[in-house]
Design a protein around this nucleic acid. Structure first.
Lengths: 290, 290
DNA sequence: TAAAGAGTGGAACATATATTCCATAGCGTG
DNA sequence: CACGCTATGGAATATATGTTCCACTCTTTA
């Protein structure tokens, strides 16, 4: 038992100790270490059996862990976290805690923490607004376009680039033939020539709509491809020619337009497709089997 | 046993019930009632024996109390307070909420409409949790690292690629010398050689931490550069060697890890930097002007 | 490839903790 | 003042929970 000479005296101390000794721990002990760092509340409130199950480990392993950090048993370690829990918020009664919660989102000035909370609030709202602008039917239609496509091409530049790259990467992961039109080396428009009938272009573009994207959309249409647009308006230059549009109203914090909502929609779309694809695969195989 | 027909379903409900029935209680039961109203945390966290001693009562009296309020035993009453402790504290309840969301959603089908709203909810929670895992001081420190850096290098592959590309793009927009280590053409590690002392590497990486990113981080340290890590754990291979870590707990919907929270943090970081940069610029000019 | 060692799972065990039960004390009422 | 009823304390019991131990596995090393 490679225990540390001095037993940690507070939850913080223990966390620090875990971080520094992490590399020297065995597989299971690492597993537990991560869990403790991630969910100190669980350690404080749940029983060993529950904790053990949640991090996929035997209760005895947790005891071993505690001992290797100088505790007499797992219970002593738990006590540490319970105490921490209380001293962090217990002085406050209920009403005070609720008030504290409100304050985190309301105060305004350009200090780092507050800026973050503005983004948190703004993006959170924008994401929830997705449910208003995108219906289940829209999603269904978008997934159908994906399912029907031979090859999927994805285009998005500047601010939309991250979203486009995410979609392209994930579709590839899901086993779909995908081409990411990334414009590297000025190939932007050349890559478009690969689009043919039966292919789908996913075009992502927001307010000042980049010329490249618009050009790619038009080229895709010219080659007989179909287009799914992700944009902020139904009448934007990328949305107008498209077979289908998923509309997003992004958060705007201090004049900077955000991206979280777009990412959220992108994920929902791609994973929806992945589910649909495996489901259909299964059916196809079943059909052959009989 | 004068029990109430309906068992309270939340700590708040129980408190209200206690207040209204207070006068009808016997001496000991009043004693306990007062204690519960005063120290709900104790009820949540301590053992019956401890609670009993603290309010000068026998453990059995507490059991009687619980039963007279419709509980099966004192333990059920304690559970109520524990749950309340978590759900009233945004700070503490994240994983608990996620677990609940997980349960309510895993039952339903992966239908397009459902899936979108699952993502909406999950990401919304994850974004709000950012305020817990990254403090104002963390943001400040990260911005300081950016300010002090000569050139900023940004690395993130696979799932983290979109976030990295966003950061790199935005920093460039903000006028910072920035290099995006995108690994195109297998240049990944070669690009690292450009990192020198006085430079900063922003490394973004989540659970199965890609080898490339880890390698880049180590190389950066070897060249005397500083490292800012954006990761999901303090003990991840990219976080350990870093000067500073911004920790993110991403949403996980149907086993797929999300990205919205990362994007949100990335934006907050970059824009924070942009504000700080212009502010300092202004001061510098003022200084020269006088 | 075999041997030694550390790490691990799971059942057996010990302990802590909640709950029940009953004898008795306290209190109101006839 | 005595009777009966409710409330109470505390010991006995049941249960839940933590801990130990040992056989087995997986690594490492010679």
């Amino acid at each position: 038992m490679t225990d540390v000479p001095t037993t940690p005296a507070s939850a913080e101390e223990l966390r620090a100790e875990i971080v520094s000794r992490y590399e020297t721990l065995s597989k299971r002990l690492k597993q537990i270490a991560r869990y403790i760092l991630d969910e100190p509340n669980d350690i404080a409130l749940e029983t060993l059996a529950v904790i053990a199950e949640r991090c996929g480990v035997q209760p005895s392993a947790i005891v071993r862990f505690a001992k290797s950090f100088g505790f007499e048993g797992a219970s002593q370690m738990q006590r540490l976290f319970r105490d921490g829990l209380l001293s962090n918020n217990a002085a406050l009664g209920y009403s005070e805690r609720v008030r504290q919660l409100d304050q985190t989102t309301s105060a305004q000035d350009a200090e780092p923490a507050n800026l973050l909370s503005e983004f948190v609030e703004g993006n959170s709202l924008a994401i929830q607004n997705l449910l208003q602008t995108v219906s289940g039917a829209d999603m269904r239609a978008a997934v159908d376009l994906l399912m029907a496509a031979d090859t999927v091409h994805v285009a998005g530049f500047r601010r939309s680039f991250p979203v486009a790259s995410y979609i392209a990467y994930s579709l590839l992961q899901a086993g779909k033939r995908t081409v990411f039109i990334d414009g590297v080396g000025g190939l932007g428009l050349q890559q478009v020539h690969a689009i043919g009938p039966g292919d789908l272009l996913i075009a992502i573009s927001f307010h000042p709509y980049s010329e490249e994207t618009v050009a790619v959309v038009n080229a895709a249409k010219a080659h007989g491809g179909r287009v799914l647009a992700i944009s902020d308006s139904l009448v934007s230059p990328v949305a107008k020619p498209a077979e289908h549009v998923l509309q997003i109203r992004e958060a705007e914090v201090r004049k900077f337009r955000s991206l979280s909502a777009s990412m959220c929609l992108a994920q929902a779309l791609v994973i929806n497709f992945a589910f649909e694809a495996t489901r259909t695969d299964g059916k196809a195989r079943d059909g052959v089997g009989t």
